[in-house]
Computed example of a mutant assay.
Amino acid sequence: MFYRQAGIRYTSYPAERQLWPLGIERVLMGLILALALIAPALLSPLLLSSYLLPWVIWSIAALGLNLLMGGAGQIHLGYAAVMAIGAYSATHAARAGLPFELSLLVAGLASAVIGVIFGAAALRIRGLYLAIATLAMQYIVDFAIGHIPAISGGTQATVATPTPRILGIPVEGPVGGYYIALVVCIVVTLFMLNLRRTSFGRALAAIREKDYAAEILGISAFRYKLMAFWTSSFIGGVAGAILVFCYYRSVSPEQFHLETSVQLVAMVIVGGLGSVLGTFLGAALILLAPLALSALVASLASSGLPIGSDLRAHLPLVLYGALIVGFLIAEPLGLAKLYDNARKYLLVWPFRHARS
């Protein structure tokens, strides 16, 4: 067994605080990164554009939301509105002639500014009241986008996004869009992994547990919550821009309704609050499981099983709901906790009575 802590002796604080102290974990991360880089050569364009690319993009958005919900303990039911602000800001910036790189920056800043405005008003309340306040943000942004022609052109209008250019070189097709999304995903993932090791991350953890106790320790809860809203909204705006430039290739109001916000919240909760790995697992389950179950039911129906058309239409949704409930019953802390349980078991195997 290579999954062992034996022989690891820390002689400095940086060595103890490294992201992956076990050698096997560094090998696994290297393999995952290598597979991500060569994925376009291994997968067909259909699989790349239908499964892998949206998974990477929605994982970026879920990471931004997890910073707020898992890091600071603040619920947000209007995250799709944050993504919409970034998507439209980047689209109009690119159509005005700004380079794609600056358009991403404009998307993040626009979402961060508006997110902080709503966050400043919402952070004087907490719990379900905060959820309702962020829900109001979703409806306000939806209304503004749909009824201000200068932004969207109308409720039924679709605005085409320009071809993204990196250093002046046009990036076309699913492969180019995948690599753009992958680079952004790697940057956001490294930021989230290192966040908990910073004073900002530790302050958010203190506020998440007991905000009034953090105030006693000298941590300004309002300031750090506002910073969490700013950072989370910035990531959400960039994710919205990547979504419309690299996947949809256009932007319209119906892409960012309340259902999208609920879906993102489900990704974070099912994956595990505060877990980077759990965010990817939750995004995969929420995003890809319905497609896989639909294909499974279709194959069963084509193999001769007596599945009616009505049952065939609703059975994937039933199985999907049962799958999510089953995972949450097995481990209420999310899919990341299942991985953590397996990791801890392997650390002490075969001594089941020991604990790491």
Rank of each mutant, 00 (worst) to 15 (best):
A34S: 13
A34C: 14
A34W: 09
L35C: 14
L35I: 04
A36D: 02
L37S: 01
L37R: 00
L37H: 04
I38A: 08
I38K: 01
I38C: 10
I38E: 03
I38N: 08
I38P: 04
A39H: 06
A39F: 05
P40H: 07
P40V: 11
P40E: 04
P40A: 11
P40L: 10
P40W: 08
A41S: 15
A41Y: 13
A41D: 03
L43H: 14
L43R: 13
S44T: 15
S44W: 11
P45W: 09
P45S: 04
L46K: 12
L46H: 15
L47R: 14
L47F: 11
L47Q: 09
L48I: 10
L48E: 07
L48C: 08
L48R: 05
L48A: 05
L48G: 08
S49C: 07
S49T: 14
S49F: 09
S49G: 14
S50H: 10
S50L: 13
S50Q: 14
S50R: 12
Y51K: 08
Y51N: 12
Y51L: 15
L52K: 08
L52W: 05
L53A: 03
L53F: 01
P54F: 04
P54Q: 12
W55C: 01
W55K: 07
V56F: 02
V56E: 02
V56L: 03
V56A: 10
I57K: 10
I57W: 13
W58Q: 02
W58T: 09
S59G: 07
S59I: 02
S59L: 06
I60E: 06
I60K: 05
I60M: 13
I60T: 12
I60N: 06
A61C: 12
A61S: 15
A61Y: 15
A62H: 07
A62E: 00
L63F: 05
L63Y: 03
L63S: 05
L63M: 11
L63I: 08
L63K: 05
G64C: 09
G64H: 06
G64W: 00
G64T: 08
G64K: 12
L65N: 03
L65S: 01
L65M: 10
L65Y: 03
L65P: 00
L65G: 02
N66E: 07
N66Y: 00
N66A: 02
N66S: 14
L67V: 08
L67H: 03
L67Q: 11
L68W: 04
L68T: 09
M69N: 08
M69S: 01
M69R: 01
M69A: 00
M69I: 15
M69L: 14
M69Y: 05
M69K: 00
G70F: 11
G70S: 10
G71P: 04
G71A: 05
G71K: 00
G71T: 05
G71V: 06
A72I: 10
A72N: 06
A72R: 00
A72F: 05
A72L: 02
G73K: 01
G73L: 06
G73I: 11
G73T: 11
